[in-house]
Design a protein around this nucleic acid. Sequence first.
DNA 1: TAAGTTAATGTCTTAATGACACAATAAATC
DNA 2: GATTTATTGTGTCATTAAGACATTAACTTA
Lengths: 232, 232
Amino acid sequence: MANHYDITEYKNPLFTVDSVLFTVQEGALKVLMVKRTSEPFAGRWGLPGGFVNVDIDDNVGMTALRKLKEKTSVAPQYLEQLQTYSGVNRDPRGFSVTLVYFALIAEAQVSTHIATVDDAKWIDLNKLTELPVAFDHKFIIEQAKERLKQKALYSMIPVYCLPEHFTVGQFKLVIETILGKPVQRKSIIRRIEAADMFEKVDEKVKSGGRLAQLYKVKPDVDIVNFERNLSV
Amino acid sequence: MANHYDITEYKNPLFTVDSVLFTVQEGALKVLMVKRTSEPFAGRWGLPGGFVNVDIDDNVGMTALRKLKEKTSVAPQYLEQLQTYSGVNRDPRGFSVTLVYFALIAEAQVSTHIATVDDAKWIDLNKLTELPVAFDHKFIIEQAKERLKQKALYSMIPVYCLPEHFTVGQFKLVIETILGKPVQRKSIIRRIEAADMFEKVDEKVKSGGRLAQLYKVKPDVDIVNFERNLSV
DNA sequence: TAAGTTAATGTCTTAATGACACAATAAATC
DNA sequence: GATTTATTGTGTCATTAAGACATTAACTTA
């Protein structure tokens, strides 16, 4: 079939891909933001992302990964689509569409790299109000946070904010940071056992008291969804 | 700020908006499909949708609604974003991105209109395999169905497949059709009461036995999500 | 050695659903 | 008109997974 489609026939909207990359650092939920160097909103902080490069991206998921790698040098441990945001007024250049991904990473994996660049920063979600943010990205981050909180209630995805080996105590802290509320250690242990996603590592680590058992995610497991929410 | 953005600078991907509109008809889950008149895939059946018209659509949600109204003459009772599908190979014209919405409507609201046009049809999901379908729309429909099944376990959105006034029996049938499994009438009644989304209509209808109480959705209510799934 | 700290387990309570019997009410049949 | 049948709606006990919290385990520090 001949390529008789002419892109100029349609006023195609401006299409970009952005990511909300979360991590938990010192008991605080943080999001990766980059300082914009070009218009619009030059000088303000925005989500890492950009335009699709149809020559090197096989799909828009790869665009999200590519842009994240540019800023963090590694791929996030978890990535899913959040939502698409669109409108005539959200970008001064005209009608725009942004597909936003939602990602998680262990802080230790990237902090050294982030520290070396000055155009990318982990922003504490509680200090987001003070930051000059581009576009509707503040709103988008809030929606991503709500999605993360919701998912933390019925799935184990918060584990993707942790390093390869982790303790129940660390897992508990990550979940509590996301939810903003304490959870029962017992509930987490019950779910770790029920999910069959994790295995004990033959090693224990110091924690100020009794040694803590290390766990890791089994290779190539599916993420388990529970039928019931934590009701903290 | 001057509009110094030149769209030709970037090879912008082809962007379309499609919708998976479900209804329940005679105990079967059906999806609205339209016969394509233009290339690619002319003659095959695809999801209702098309290009954004930046002159009349304020955002892409309006594009989805506009395209659905063209086919059904009414707006669906429920509409949410499903996901975005993209890739270099899904459309012969090149790299394409489709934002897919997921919608519900009461069969009675549209069946008369659908019956008068021959380029739009309700397709039984169990007979989808036989139909020549365009693009990756068969796959997309399956994913939408899974999302609907999942949501039916913890929310009351299946009510949006029902007319304004409905009985518990009708509600039960819709849920069972979506899930493909029987559910306890008692569980539905309990949730109707707990959700506080519904009110009794001062009217009962014949049903072959004892008269059935009619319910309706309260005006302007939020959709309630339960903390626990039905575990049929 | 005792006190303090964190980890892990045991167990009772709580909350929502599943299962199912039973009662209410209307239509069809004898 | 009484009886059967169908469907709606209620009552109640069992089941399941989480919450609450006491108890035990294991290590550190004074």
